[in-house]
Computed example of a mutant assay.
Amino acid sequence: MTLTQADSRTARRAASRRPPRRGLARRFAAGVAGIALAAAAVYTQQNFAMSFEQRVSYLTYKGRIGETVETKRFTVKVLSVAAARAVDTTDYSNKVTKVATSNLFLLVDVSATSAREPFKLSRLSPPVLLTADGRRYQPTDKVNDALTLFNKYIQPGFWSSGLLVFEVPQDAVPGADLVFIPPVSPLVSDNYAPEAQIDLGLSGAAADRLISQAKDYHSLVSASR
């Protein structure tokens, strides 16, 4: 059979009236779904992503000086608090040097044990001195860590004791707490990491007494031997 020119035009018109193929509809639907998923991801990131501070927020256990504060990861006790206007330290060659301050060195004697795994305190997330008005002071870097609790392994079944040394102004002493924080990784999310907040018993009168009785010099080197 021979196809005439008129028949050819009729066939082309009929083809143009056919509904679009299903493949095109599927691609369009997939594109719409992809846009919706991307928008949802952006919304979730903006509204539900936790900040670093939230990811390392702590579950706080509270106590007072002389009390044993037990958490799921460690147990800690503050044994005593003293103050000095000068301390000593050592360098890499064990040379002893006297270090003075125009403020105060607060010497917090701490004992701790681990519940499950041994650990050492970290300078990345160290224990801090928390003042009544919310200031936080990290342990001073003027003292070699080898002379402090930073040098001790805190292990299950054993109590490790040592000093934490803070350099603070006098107005930081009244109402100060020690916040004992175990090492924490910024790469690991743990919304229930424990910390112990310990009232050092430095009420107005006690703080005044501690400041007025601050030693002119306290040897850390002789105490660690």
Rank of each mutant, 00 (worst) to 15 (best):
M1N: 10
T4F: 15
Q5D: 15
Q5N: 12
S8I: 15
R12N: 08
A14Q: 12
A15C: 12
R17W: 04
R17C: 15
R17F: 08
P19E: 12
P19F: 14
G23N: 13
G23D: 11
G23I: 15
L24G: 08
A25I: 15
R26C: 08
R26H: 13
A29Y: 10
A30G: 06
G34V: 13
G34I: 10
I35A: 08
A36Q: 11
A38T: 14
A38P: 10
A38K: 08
A39Y: 09
A40D: 05
A41V: 15
A41Q: 12
V42C: 09
N47G: 11
S51I: 08
F52G: 10
V56D: 03
Y58Q: 06
Y58M: 05
Y58A: 05
L59W: 07
Y61K: 07
I65C: 01
T71L: 02
K72D: 06
T75Q: 14
V76D: 05
V76E: 06
K77G: 01
V78C: 13
S80Q: 09
A82C: 06
A82S: 13
A86M: 08
V87L: 03
V87K: 02
T89V: 10
T89G: 01
D91W: 09
D91Y: 11
T97K: 04
T101K: 04
T101G: 06
S102K: 11
L107V: 14
D109E: 13
S111D: 05
S111I: 09
A112R: 01
T113R: 14
S114I: 01
S114Q: 09
E117Y: 04
P118E: 11
F119Y: 09
L121D: 00
L121Q: 01
R123E: 07
L124S: 09
P126K: 02
P126W: 05
P127Q: 03
V128K: 00
L130H: 07
T131E: 03
T131P: 03
A132V: 01
G134H: 01
R135T: 00
Q138A: 12
D141N: 12
D141G: 11
D141Y: 12
D141M: 12
L149A: 03
L149C: 05
N151F: 03
Y153F: 12
Y153T: 15
I154T: 03
I154D: 02
G157Y: 06
G157I: 07
G157K: 02
F158M: 11
F158T: 13
S161C: 07
G162C: 04
G162R: 00
L163Y: 04
L163T: 10
E167V: 05
E167A: 02
Q170F: 10
Q170W: 10
P174A: 10
P174Q: 09
D177H: 13
L178N: 00
V179K: 04
V179L: 09
P182F: 00
P183Q: 06
S189F: 08
S189V: 15
D190R: 08
N191Y: 05
A193F: 00
P194G: 06
E195D: 09
E195Q: 11
E195L: 04
I198V: 10
D199L: 05
D199R: 02
G201Q: 03
S203Q: 10
S203Y: 05
A205Y: 07
A205V: 07
A205H: 04
A206K: 09
R209L: 14
R209S: 14
L210Q: 02
L210F: 14
I211E: 01
Q213S: 15
A214H: 03
D216L: 05
H218R: 10
H218P: 02
S219I: 07
S219V: 08
A223R: 07
A223N: 04
S224V: 15
